[in-house]
Computed example of a mutant assay.
Amino acid sequence: MSSETTSTSQTSIGADAIDLAIAQGLDFDGSPIPPAKLELYTKVMGLEAGRQRSGVSNTMRSRIVRIGAKHISQAELNQMLIDADFAPLKEKEIAFYYSGK
């Protein structure tokens, strides 16, 4: 395996991989991200950065639900939330994240 292949595979995993690629302006395949896409992303992320937050626990729960629903069954995620003293899944979250599964 070449170092280029290793480098590409290692940089395209994990939560920071997207941010790193965006900062470099390059997609995982090495192609440049079009300037219009980068500008729109930067504008929207700037708006998000300036938004008032409702609290760390609320944000943690939101991230757990949004990402966890991709990897964990509804019943298991719901129990995990309860066990960690978070609010259980809400009906609208179940409908949004699990209705197509």
Rank of each mutant, 00 (worst) to 15 (best):
D29W: 01
G30W: 01
S31V: 12
P32K: 03
P32I: 00
P32E: 10
P32L: 09
I33A: 08
P34H: 01
P35T: 10
P35A: 07
P35L: 13
A36Q: 13
A36K: 04
A36I: 05
K37N: 14
K37Q: 15
K37I: 15
Y41N: 05
T42V: 02
K43P: 02
K43Y: 15
K43R: 11
V44F: 04
M45V: 05
M45H: 13
L47C: 07
E48C: 06
G50K: 00
Q52C: 00
R53S: 07
R53M: 04
G55M: 05
V56L: 12
N58M: 04
R61S: 06
R61E: 06
R61Y: 06
R61V: 08
S62W: 07
V65M: 10
K70A: 14
K70Q: 12
H71V: 14
H71R: 13
H71I: 15
S73P: 02
A75K: 09
E76Q: 08
E76H: 09
L77T: 12
L77I: 01
L77D: 05
N78Q: 07
M80G: 02
M80R: 11
L81C: 05
D83Q: 04
D83I: 06
A84F: 06
F86I: 08
L89M: 04
K90W: 14
E91G: 01
E91H: 12
